[in-house]
């Protein structure tokens, strides 16, 4: 049932990539526990506009947990204190009246801050561009049912393909490693006959791009899996390691 709460917010503000950032404290009151976390942020921003202050910049778009745009680090956890969801699906019923909530951007060398809570995640696009695809052109492909795919393989590929590219795995990792993100794509495509053809090449190209862009190495802490809003399993990292090893051995 609906009730309302009051909160103290400590929000990271930073004017630009090279500026020095700082925490600022704000009060919000009468927030319905049925509202989403980002709706609470909207209310705060309306408040700030009313005071002729610049609203807090944060990334968001679909607000239904699929575009991967929202990206807040809330009370020390990527996407906040709920399981298997993104920030936009987090609801205020997860917070207590009078609580202080700390809101920060993703922090990783490969994700520089653009403004306030917005970071630059184009590094992920660069990794995909390095090899995260099946090299087919439009047209001239076989009939969709020409190659049967065992259902378990198709299902596991879909589990991996559910990644939304939000970057929570990198933000959660003490090494800022992008292994969960990279492995999800490598694994999805390696599991399907269409993608298997160039699996080795793909693994090598994506891993070397990841290293080049300043992401850290994987030390198997498993933090990424815990914070992933789409429950991507670290088993995919093992598959990536196998594919990568195969590609190195065949050199």
């Amino acid at each position: 049932m609906e009730k309302t709460i009051n909160l103290t917010l400590k929000v990271w503000r930073q004017n630009g990539p090279k500026e020095k950032g700082r925490f600022e404290t704000y009060q919000v009151s009468n927030i319905s526990t049925d509202s989403s976390f980002l709706e609470m942020m909207d209310i705060l921003n309306e408040q700030l506009v009313g005071e002729n202050k610049e609203p807090i910049a944060f990334d968001h778009d679909c607000r239904e947990g699929i575009c991967g745009m929202c990206s807040l680090y809330i009370n020390g956890r990527p996407h906040g204190p709920d399981e298997d969801i993104t920030t936009c699906q987090l609801h205020m019923r997860k917070f207590k009246d009078g609580e202080t909530v700390t809101i920060e951007p993703w922090r990783a060398a490969a994700f520089p801050i653009i403004k306030d809570l917005i970071v630059d995640r184009t590094a992920f696009d660069k990794i995909i561009a390095a090899g995260g695809y099946v090299s087919v052109n439009t047209g001239g492909v076989p009939d969709a049912n020409a190659i049967p795919i065992a259902r378990p393989a198709a299902e596991e590929a879909m589990d991996a393909a559910a990644c939304i590219g939000c970057g929570a795995c990198v933000a959660a990792c003490k090494n800022s490693s992008a292994m969960l993100f990279v492995s999800a794509k490598v694994s999805q495509l390696a599991l399907l006959p269409q993608g298997k053809v160039e699996a080795k090449r793909r693994a090598k190209a994506m891993v070397s791009k990841m290293d080049e862009l300043g992401f850290g190495g994987c030390t198997n802490t498993g933090a990424c899996e815990v914070e992933c809003p789409k429950s991507i399993s670290i088993a995919h990292i093992s598959r990536l390691n196998r594919e990568y090893l195969k590609s190195r051995l065949s050199e």
Binding site: A150, A154, Q188, L189, L192, Q194
Partner: peptide, 15 residues
């Protein structure tokens, strides 16, 4: 086209 790209559509047990 989408299957060739590796889009993991739902499948029956027969594949």
């Amino acid at each position: 086209q989408c299957v060739a790209q590796g889009v993991p559509f739902a499948r029956e047990y027969g594949g």
